[in-house]
Design a protein around this nucleic acid. Structure first.
Lengths: 253, 253
DNA sequence: ATGTGTGAAGTACTTCACAGCC
DNA sequence: GGCTGTGAAGTACTTCACACAT
């Protein structure tokens, strides 16, 4: 049960729903595309279509940020880009370390979407001494031994774990001890972290299993409906999902 | 607006909440670990801790599957593994194709979690002729030209898109036309698909932006609370998030 | 006329709390 | 006595529908 808690009622009015936060990056991407095409304004209907949500949801989402639109007209693209970026904290620079430079770590290091959104890959870290010094995506890989120093020297608060499952908790503990307070975990393990540390998890095998569930269901329903008649479902893996309440406080041995 | 729809009320009793489905793989992983340690039974409390959720939620989740526990005792590990696997459709074999064999595609091809859960990488496909024939994770890469044939010959219904954003929609269209009905999309784009096709999206940059949002908020609250006092949040990226209702029906040019 | 902003209604998910079975 | 299974209560998110600003 730990400390009493109600998922942060917050100062009120600063209380942007988690589900909305999860969609802001989506809007931002759609807006950036419009901005690059020099589109000056956009309606909730158009932007919603581009982002893959419905317009009522989008308007409600934006209403949590403030009244940034103009009735009868729509939203100013540049202005919205700025407001959302600011709300997400992307107007500042976030140094990130990636731990575990296998195929996945390398893919992440090379991923362009990082740099373009206020994130900077400050360091790549791997446990394999043979990797040390090798450049990946133009950044030399450093050894795990120096993890703490790297975190502190670069003022890193966000860490990405792309190690094998067995190493993840240990890496996580060291990151947290060194001052990291947000972790993006690609290893298929449940990470245990102290209060105040945020963990987001991306698990490839889980995503596939969810697809398999729906796929199986489709096959079982192939009875009725001659032409394509099933409702489409377009979920994305980015969402709230578990305000949780109690962080696992157990050592899973 | 498309067809009327209420997010599939279904036959009733076959109506497992999406949020529950998203957690089943998590339980399955925890159970598999217990099974490997030959633990015969487990209580909702223990299993919930291992999976990182609270026990009431876990019990409610399991109640949608049926009454597979024993009051006063707990759950039989092997039996639960089987029931969840069956519910997720993992007792059958799912051939999967991965399109786009860059760093990420290679990482996915090498990812052990696939094979171990009923998924089989049936083929790797890339648009680069220079890649053709090269083995990645022991599987020779094939050229995009043969995509349709590969899908059909292998009876593939699940496709993974790991191409650059610009190619994703086109690849998606071809996959769907060839018979794929579930897509896991790693490209940072909103995919437009016909009704009946499931899309799940994994977007690294979105995950980081959500972390940045919370990170920023933490920094702003560093005023009160001397010792670690902030509520922990342990979300995972796998979740329901958007029953959506309306699939983007627009061509974003 | 057009399209935002938002109370109010509706839906989905979570947590509580306890009856019931082992 | 212990732990599951579940109605009932609580919370979070979505969608509707329309007043109101331009």
């Amino acid at each position: 049960m730990a400390t009493g808690r109600t998922h942060r009622p917050a100062t009120r009015s600063r209380g942007i729903p988690e589900a909305t936060v999860a969609r802001l990056p989506l809007y931002l991407r759609a807006l950036t595309a419009l901005s690059e095409r020099s589109v000056p304004t956009v309606s909730s209907e158009e932007l919603a279509a581009a982002a893959g949500v419905n317009s009522a949801k989008l308007r409600k989402d934006f209403s949590y940020l403030g009244s940034y639109g103009t009735r009868g007209v729509g939203y100013d693209v540049e202005y919205l880009v700025y407001q959302i970026s600011r709300e997400l904290g992307l107007t500042q620079d976030w140094p990130v370390v990636i731990v575990g430079i296998g195929n996945l770590g390398a893919a992440l290091a090379n991923y362009g979407g990082f740099a373009s959104r206020g994130f900077r890959v400050a360091a790549l870290i791997d446990a394999d001494p043979a990797m040390a010094g090798k450049p990946v995506a133009g950044i030399p890989v450093q050894h795990t031994d120096d993890l703490e120093k790297i975190i502190q020297d670069n003022g890193v608060s966000i860490g990405v774990i792309a190690t094998p499952a067995g190493a993840a908790q240990q890496v996580c503990d060291r990151l947290v001890a060194a001052g990291v307070t947000s972790i993006l975990n690609f290893a298929p393990t449940v990470l245990t972290v102290p209060d105040g540390v945020d963990v987001r998890k991306v698990d490839l095998s889980i995503e596939l299993q969810i697809l398999a569930f729906h796929e199986q269901r489709k096959a079982g329903e192939e009875t009725a409906a001659g032409d394509g008649a099933l409702p489409a479902t377009t979920r994305d893996a980015s969402a709230d999902q578990g305000p949780d309440g109690d962080v696992p406080a157990v050592m899973p041995a």
